[in-house]
């Protein structure tokens, strides 16, 4: 349904933060996009959303299509005009994502008016319905509330309701639970999962938290230094990761069976955009790297049917800690 081809995002200082990212997301599917901070996850999501912050970042190449319609580089309002406003987004910081001087009802109404073209009682009714969909207690009452009167979890529910007002086919969730405490986090995750099933939306869930991915995603894309380095169903990623980076990342997770031992780490640091060379960006930190890895030309390989990897030396076998 959503197809992203070879998207490259370039910063104003002419380095690429996202290089040749491609993905397809189908109806009802939750895709987890995992990676460290600064690997280009958020820029990818903003590029898909048409909200790259000009002039700091722009779409250098690639195309984005929704249901076959090209929506590349169109900002959301142009997409609505073109009748393909079906991508909505929820953001990381619920505390700052809502306008402090407008009521929840007003902020919801704006989105409803644009996407449903209704007004008056129908508008109010829809706003209330949306708050009920995100399990907001006292929905009718909260329409008149201002953001500062709500808790972080409640605000994130409102942000989700605003996204749902856009009647999305694809919902992009950019680390929506990072700023929330653990109990609220699991409520919000459960809510997103339920909504995805109820509305048969596709969800692109961006996170650096592998635990969240395991809980929520059907399929996982692993991103490193602006590229997608591995793509596989969630079970495969955790059982038989092929990319040395993915394996390293999983090995770092605390393991209850290895109690008392030091946690593992990946040696070195992820490169910043201007440090990425032509070869494999992970080569400098990779135990399996050869000279060939440092020269350009690593191709995407299909390990099995729906498991692909961008590596000259994909590993096989179960991960042992």
């Amino acid at each position: 349904m959503l197809s992203v081809e070879d998207v490259t995002v370039r910063l104003a200082d002419s380095f690429n933060v996202v290089s040749g990212v491609s993905m397809r997301i189908e109806r009802g599917e939750v895709v987890g996009l995992v990676g460290e901070s600064g690997c280009g996850k958020s820029m990818t999501s903003l590029a898909i959303m048409g909200l790259l912050p000009a002039p700091q970042a722009r779409l250098q190449a690639g195309s984005i299509a929704l249901d076959g319609k090209d929506i590349t580089s169109l900002p959301p309002y142009r997409r609505v005009e073109a009748g393909c406003g079906g991508v909505a987004m929820i953001f990381q910081e619920p505390m700052t994502s809502l306008n402090p001087v407008l009521t929840i009802g007003d902020q919801l109404a704006e989105a409803i008016r644009v996407h449903d073209g209704v007004s008056g009682p129908a508008l109010r009714h829809r706003a209330q319905e949306l708050l009920e969909m995100v399990r907001m207690p006292d929905a009718a009452l909260q329409l008149g509330a201002y953001p500062h009167e709500l808790s972080g979890g409640m605000r994130q529910r409102v942000v989700i309701a605003i996204a749902l007002a856009c009647r999305p086919q694809v919902l992009i969730a950019d680390e929506p639970t990072t700023a929330l405490d653990v109990t609220v986090q699991s409520q919000i995750l459960a809510l997103i999962r339920e909504l995805c099933d109820e509305l048969s939306m596709a969800v692109l869930f961006i996170t650096h938290d592998l635990g969240v991915v395991a809980q929520l995603a059907d399929r996982v894309l692993v991103m490193y230094a602006g590229r997608i380095v591995e793509s596989a169903p969630v079970g495969t990623i955790f059982r038989e990761p092929a990319h040395p980076y993915t394996r390293g990342l999983l090995a770092c997770l605390p393991n209850p069976l290895a109690r008392g031992r030091r946690l593992q780490t990946i040696v070195g640091q992820a490169p910043r955009p201007h440090e990425i060379g032509d070869g494999c960006a992970f080569a400098a930190r990779c135990a399996y790297a050869e000279d060939a890895c440092r020269s350009p030309g690593a191709d995407w390989r299909q390990v099995d049917g729906d498991h692909g990897v961008l590596c000259r030396h994909p590993q096989s076998g179960q991960l042992v800690q």
Binding site: L51, P76, Y77, M89, E110, V114, V159
Partner: peptide
């Protein structure tokens, strides 16, 4: 530069409305 301005844009409302109202 505020996050809520990005939220407003993401809704699909027109740019002048984002400028005036948000």
């Amino acid at each position: 530069r505020e996050d809520y301005v990005r939220t407003a844009r993401a809704k699909g409302i027109r740019p002048w409305r984002v400028v005036v109202r948000h």
